[in-house]
């Protein structure tokens, strides 16, 4: 009788202990995952991915990490240099204000387009939107976290 009761006690305690063993292993994995994510440079606020670029500079598929202010154009002093015949020297600027991205046309000759419609002055950008400058198309994406 006593032996049976003790055996059941032990089984119950092992069951509870196993629940916590599982939780402990999961939490350890979660913490490791979060630490690994924290080690990665997360200072970037977003990424700009080149989806089409006939001139090959920048090449299609390249992605740029963005700072709060990013200038785009043909001039070599821009943050992102677009060697495209239809891009102006100082073509457009991407800015991160508050919690949102904005694109601003800097008086370019051929204009800046977002999802196919021309930007007039300052325009908000959402992640996933496509910007066209000259013949270069770029897509704004969230930073990899």
């Amino acid at each position: 009788m006593d032996a049976a009761v003790i055996a059941i006690w032990v089984l119950r305690l092992i069951f509870l202990a196993l629940l916590y063993a599982f939780l402990w292993m999961v939490v350890r994995a979660l913490v490791r995952d979060l630490r690994a994510a924290a080690r990665e440079p997360t200072l970037e606020l977003g990424r700009l991915v080149v989806t089409a670029s006939p001139s090959g500079e920048p090449a299609a598929g390249v992605s740029f990490a963005l700072d709060a202010i990013t200038s785009l154009g043909r001039d070599v002093n821009n943050s992102i240099v677009l060697d495209d015949d239809f891009a102006s020297a100082a073509h457009a600027a991407l800015t991160y204000r508050g919690r949102a991205w904005y694109v601003e046309d800097l008086g370019s000759t051929n204009g800046t387009f977002v999802n196919g419609s021309q930007v007039d002055g300052l325009s908000p950008l959402a992640f996933g939107d496509e910007i066209q400058i000259g013949q270069v198309r770029l897509r704004l994406e969230r930073a990899r976290g």
């Binding site: 509870l16 629940l19 916590y20 939780l23 979660l30 979060l34 996933g128 994406e141 990899r144």
Partner: peptide, 29 residues
Amino acid sequence: GLVGILAVLGLYLVLVERGLRIASAAQDE
């Protein structure tokens, strides 16, 4: 007992943490 249901609640917390982590690593909104 209390020990057991705290573990069960912990499992739900793990599910929520994973979901929010997946959200923070997602590519778009």
